[in-house]
């Protein structure tokens, strides 16, 4: 069972996760406009920048994050940004957006000139995340946990980060067992904050 405090923590993180998204006008451009390969690539890099900004806004709302040493905040974000972005992208792709949006997005990515060497593992990752059938609470918690990894390069006060991460790991373990009682695979994966490094 989740304690009252744990339920509050979950709703706080899920709200932050839902609130901070790619701006509407950028999403519209991605889905509607026709571009050549070079324009696709530029648009995707613009989107990546926006995504990082969205991620920082989410992170600022993780309870306790802003009480960390400022340079440690930077080190955590820098060390986790790519993993967290892939997690978020995987969620977008696995939600099966209406009207074939994921088809358009995938097509755009495949036609952006990015090497197949990167694209294939990326879509394989999205697929394997999709197969876990994670609920939004699990996505939000896993993203927060990924960002609050004490062993990122240049983090000075690892214990302060652990003190924030550990309660969230505990909550995720419980949520996982409650929501997937017959699927041990997800619970095993989420027990380790190194799941992202493995997937990478």
């Amino acid at each position: 069972e989740l304690s009252q405090d744990q339920q509050v923590l979950i709703s706080y993180i899920v709200d932050a996760h839902n609130k901070h998204r790619i701006p509407q006008d950028m999403a519209r451009k991605l889905l509607q406009e026709q571009f050549n390969a070079e324009e696709n690539f530029l648009l995707l890099t613009e989107m990546a920048t926006s995504h990082v900004q969205v991620l920082v806004e989410f992170t600022k709302n993780i309870p306790g994050f802003q009480s960390l040493d400022h340079e440690d905040q930077i080190a955590l974000l820098k060390g986790s940004a790519v993993e967290a972005m892939f997690l978020r992208s995987a969620q977008v792709f696995s939600k099966k957006l209406p009207n074939g949006h994921t088809v358009v997005l995938e097509d755009r990515i495949r036609r952006s000139g990015i090497s197949e060497e990167f694209i294939t593992p990326m879509f394989n990752f999205y697929k394997s995340i999709g197969e876990l059938q994670m609920m939004q609470e699990e996505h939000a918690l896993l993203t927060a946990i990924t960002i609050l990894s004490p062993d990122r390069p240049y983090v000075k006060d690892q214990q302060a980060v652990e003190r924030l991460q550990e309660p969230m790991l505990e909550v995720l373990r419980k949520v996982c067992k409650l929501q997937h009682p017959t699927n041990p695979a997800l619970c095993t994966a989420s027990r380790s904050s190194r799941v992202m490094a493995h997937e990478r």
Binding site: V52, Q53, K78, A81, V82
Partner: peptide, 21 residues
């Protein structure tokens, strides 16, 4: 690619956001 985007710059600016307000 992440370093080419000036990842740290983007992060620093975004973190400073509230302080400027």
């Amino acid at each position: 690619p992440a370093s080419n985007l000036g990842l740290e710059d983007i992060i620093r600016k975004a973190l400073m956001g509230n302080m400027e307000e």
